[in-house]
Computed example of a mutant assay.
Amino acid sequence: MTKMSLGSHPHMLGFEQLERLLERTAKTGNEGYPPFNIEQTAQDAYRITLAVAGFSEGDLAITVEDRQLVIRGRSREDAPERIFLHRGIAARQFQRSFVLADGVEVGEAIMENGLLHVDLTLSRPETVVQTIQIRKG
């Protein structure tokens, strides 16, 4: 049995990019750290919140690369004179990726009480109806 892809379906023209997007989403490698929430804050607005306890603003980097929001964290090494009897607060480096749909724009990022908030907005394009003229060949 042959696996049919979106790009090869006869009624789905030009969806090769969507297929690549789905494949890229499956490969993002997001483990369970750090935990995050995604909430809808308005009709066309969203907020991603990551729990980044132990990280400062300088330890974090937020980029948009090819319609993909990438949040990276790299904490500075503790001073060697610190001796932990128990270390339960994870401060390992991480990378979280979120694939953005067309029209989703990244707004501001706010650090508050160990939580990093990244605001997103969705701008919906106007619906355009196009009439195609038929000419004699």
Rank of each mutant, 00 (worst) to 15 (best):
V106S: 00
L13Y: 01
N30T: 11
D119S: 12
E39G: 07
P35R: 12
G32Y: 14
Q95A: 15
Q93A: 12
L21I: 10
M12Y: 09
G88I: 06
A79Y: 03
I134Y: 06
R96A: 09
Q17P: 01
V104C: 06
L18M: 12
G32R: 14
Q133R: 10
E39D: 14
V64P: 13
P125D: 10
F36H: 12
A91I: 07
L50K: 00
T25W: 05
L18N: 11
R96E: 08
K136C: 04
F98E: 02
M4S: 04
K27H: 14
V70E: 10
E16N: 05
E77W: 09
I110Y: 08
V128R: 06
T131M: 07
A61E: 14
A53W: 12
D102V: 04
T49A: 15
R135E: 12
T25F: 10
L18K: 06
E108L: 05
A91D: 07
L120E: 02
E81W: 13
D78S: 11
E31F: 07
L69Y: 02
R24C: 11
V106I: 13
T2Y: 03
M12W: 08
N30E: 12
H86W: 04
V99F: 03
Q43F: 10
H9Q: 06
E16A: 07
G114A: 11
L100E: 00
D66F: 09
F55L: 14
L13P: 01
V64K: 15
E31V: 12
T127D: 08
Q40A: 12
N30F: 06
H86P: 00
G73I: 15
T2I: 08
F94A: 05
K3C: 02
A45E: 14
F15Y: 10
R67G: 05
A90T: 07
T121I: 10
S123F: 03
R47T: 11
V106A: 01
G29T: 11
L18F: 09
E108P: 03
D66I: 05
R47I: 04
N30I: 08
R92V: 09
R92S: 12
Q95P: 02
